[in-house]
Design a protein around this nucleic acid. Structure first.
Lengths: 225, 225
DNA sequence: TTTTTCCATATTGTCGACAATCGGAGTTGA
DNA sequence: TCAACTCCGATTGTCGACAATATGGAAAAA
């Protein structure tokens, strides 16, 4: 689960993490009703902590709650994803521009190594994009960290954008884009290395916009069926 | 409490709203410990709903919770506010640019009327900036709505940016900036009316940047004491 | 057959009590 | 005097039971 410690602390925290994971991976389908008693028993805890976890996920926008009618997994329709990617374009572009002035040389080297390992993974297990997909998020998160802006890091890497990971799982089957994506990542890192914030921002925005186009296309195909 | 219905639904929702209000207005000081039993009694409810409310506020980043040690009101230090305003500049700039293409003529007229009423309020009760401050948020929220991007609206107008309102209460004592701010608002509306998204974005970014400079200065003075 | 009403059932909302954990006052020893 | 230890009160975490509300289906009326 990326930079988080998956299970420790209070039961509510554990439930929150497990639920988030189940939602992101699609184990719990979009729009599915979340029964408190059932989930509480499955996790081996009372309903109290589970309700707290649901409140937390509600704040994360992973579930939608209706008073007296329970909670359901959020539904990522086309409009929601479109909005998400538009916001992401602005925020990650901004992160890139700032990161160009803030990243240390060592951190930029680390980014290069990260991309090297991605390349190896892609060559080794061609179709299995999952690892790269997670790694990709890692790449984006590292750049967010480079902005030194805590709020940006929270929004992009923290709990907030689990929605994105959710979307990734849904669309990670298309291996087509991993090649160009890696290439674009490399371009971005080089722009960062040259401390060219404007270029880095532009490349990142283009990269994310391309990702959206790819996903949008995939949704069209799904809807056609 | 702006576009929200203050008190209805479950007790947890009520507690959440009341707590948020108390935090934003400064009734609950920054960093203050939040005692569950005490608050539950004050609100006339059990600790269960109150704990759920705290989880919700935690997701909103209005309180920070430490396992086994309770919840405290978040502390808005200089760095946090700086980060907040940087993100806001990017998001509201984006909202402005999109709104220029999406707002209806009627909505733009409404914005003009909103500013007219602000002007009246300023003239009538010179020093009392509170109303204008709330109205200012209203202005920004209307533009966010104009972007037709639900995620943007959630981030800028919804629960997320209560932090901003919190900051406003803290710094709303300086009436100096209300005049220029209103002028800038008018400029933005005219850019929107001319459907000039780029200009509108630029003006909005400048407006927010100016607000940050003003607040930053104020923090300096506070720290000097 | 269709629609409406009503009731049994399941699910959510709330509370009070108990267990686990933390923080601090007071004590003891060097 | 100061440090560390111990214990006690206070606070948080958790559970089970009960009340309030919604859901779905059966029965009755049109």
């Amino acid at each position: 689960m990326l930079p988080y410690t998956p299970e420790q602390g209070t039961l509510a925290d554990i439930a929150s993490h497990r639920l988030a994971h189940s939602i992101v991976t699609g184990e719990l389908a979009q729009g599915q009703k979340l029964n408190e008693a059932e989930l509480a028993e499955r996790f081996g805890m009372g309903r109290g902590p589970l309700r707290e976890a649901l409140r937390h996920l509600e704040g994360m926008r992973l579930v939608k709650r209706i008073p007296n009618a329970g909670a359901r997994v959020v539904v990522l329709d086309r409009k929601t994803l479109s909005d998400l990617y538009a916001v992401r374009e602005a925020l990650e572009g901004m992160a890139c521009r700032i990161a160009a002035t803030q990243l240390t040389d060592a951190e930029i080297d680390q980014l290069r190594k990260l991309l090297d390992s991605h390349e190896k993974q892609i060559k080794k297990q061609g179709g299995k994009v999952y690892a790269q997909s997670e790694g990709d998020l890692d790449f984006h998160y590292q750049i967010a960290r480079g902005s030194r802006n805590q709020m940006l890091m929270d929004l992009l890497g923290g709990e907030q954008y689990q929605l994105l990971r959710m979307c990734r799982y849904r669309t990670s089957r298309n291996a087509e884009r991993t090649g160009p994506a890696l290439q674009q990542h490399r371009q971005i890192v080089e722009a960062l290395a040259q401390r060219d914030g404007e270029l880095a921002e532009m490349l990142m925005r283009r990269h994310i916009h391309g990702a959206w186009l790819s996903i949008s296309e995939m949704i069209d195909k799904e809807e056609a069926v």
